[in-house]
């Protein structure tokens, strides 16, 4: 004779226990359904990020550690040879110094000017509306189109200042300093409206009460600007600084179209160097990849430093 043992789990539960289990199951089902819906909502963006950011980044990392000529493909790993070749390139240090100089000048001029313009056109009137529109219109142009436009404007043959240049004996793009400042002017012309708009949003986010309190306290215009406007504009300043610094460190189109790195290789930016290593001279994607990784790391470090600096000031 054998005794049959039924496991307790298979035994029917009392009705009250069944009633308590049903909401738990329903809750779990709802949670699973919510998680699934969350994944589905995030999937297009995740796919986008994976295909357009993560995979290219992994490919560049692989390139930077491999012998990878443009025309014959991957010839196998050679880490860290590409990095050694990249930093010993004869234009590497010059391009780094030039890019940093360009970044500092552009960021300072562009942000100061756009803040000034934003304060100038902040109030609404018909004339200020017209001025605001005039400043914003160049932002509608692509950077390559704007560069081509200025290439003709700076031309000593077809440009509107050709006669002036002939009589004064100078050309806009003929000297290293002239080429740098002419390109900075183009960038300021093209981007001042965009940064002015960001500054305007920041300025309009500052409550009127703070200005009224400062006025009641007898603060002068300068004191109000220094002690009220600037501190409250810090998030906007942080955003615009990060955008401007990143954009300037990655400058390519304007120099490629206006100066092609000249005169005397004096306006080669780091991205232009990457381009020429990859597609013009040595046709070496491995070294270009190593340069790209170095730029990426520098950008990450610079941006983290900037964000931390602005965050620290905000805490103070």
């Amino acid at each position: 004779m054998t005794a049959t043992l039924h496991p307790p789990a298979s035994s029917p539960a009392p009705p009250e226990a069944r009633g308590a289990r049903r909401p738990a199951r329903r809750r779990r089902g709802r949670r699973t359904h919510g998680a699934l819906a969350g994944w589905l909502y995030a999937a297009p963006t995740a796919l986008f990020v994976l295909l357009l950011f993560v995979l290219p980044l992994l490919l560049v990392l692989q390139m930077s550690g491999s012998d990878w000529p443009l025309l014959s493909g991957n010839q196998g790993p050679n880490f860290p040879e590409n990095y050694q070749v990249a930093v010993s390139n004869r234009f590497f240090m010059d391009s780094v110094i030039f890019t940093l100089k360009y970044t500092v000048l552009t960021t300072v001029i562009l942000l100061a000017l756009s803040l000034g313009l934003a304060m100038l056109v902040q109030e609404s009137s018909r004339w200020k509306g017209l001025l605001r529109t005039s400043i914003l219109i160049p932002s509608a142009l692509g950077l390559a189109s704007a560069s081509l436009l200025f290439y003709v404007i700076y031309s000593p043959i077809a440009g509107p200042f050709a006669d002036l240049m002939a009589s004064w004996g100078f050309t806009f793009l003929g000297t290293p300093d002239g080429a740098l400042w002419s390109t900075i002017f183009l960038i300021v012309w093209r981007y001042a409206g965009f940064y002015m708009l960001l500054m305007l949003v920041g300025l309009q986010g500052i409550p009127d009460d703070v200005y009224e309190a400062a006025r009641i306290d007898g603060a002068s215009r300068w004191q109000t600007f220094r002690d009220v406007t600037l501190p409250l504009l810090r998030p906007t300043l942080a955003l615009t600084t990060v955008l401007c610094v990143t954009g300037s460190l990655l400058a390519f189109e304007q120099f490629y179209i206006l100066t092609k790195g000249g005169p005397d290789n004096s306006t080669i930016t780091i991205v232009q160097l990457i381009y020429s290593v990859a597609f013009q001279g040595p046709n070496d994607l491995g070294v270009a990849g190593a340069l790209s990784v170095i730029v990426l790391l520098a950008l990450v470090v610079i941006n983290i430093a900037q964000i931390r600096a602005f965050g620290k000031k905000a805490e103070d």
Partner: peptide, 9 residues
């Protein structure tokens, strides 16, 4: 300022 920004266009 308006002239500088509009002149090229």
């Amino acid at each position: 300022l308006a002239l500088i920004f509009l002149y090229p266009l």
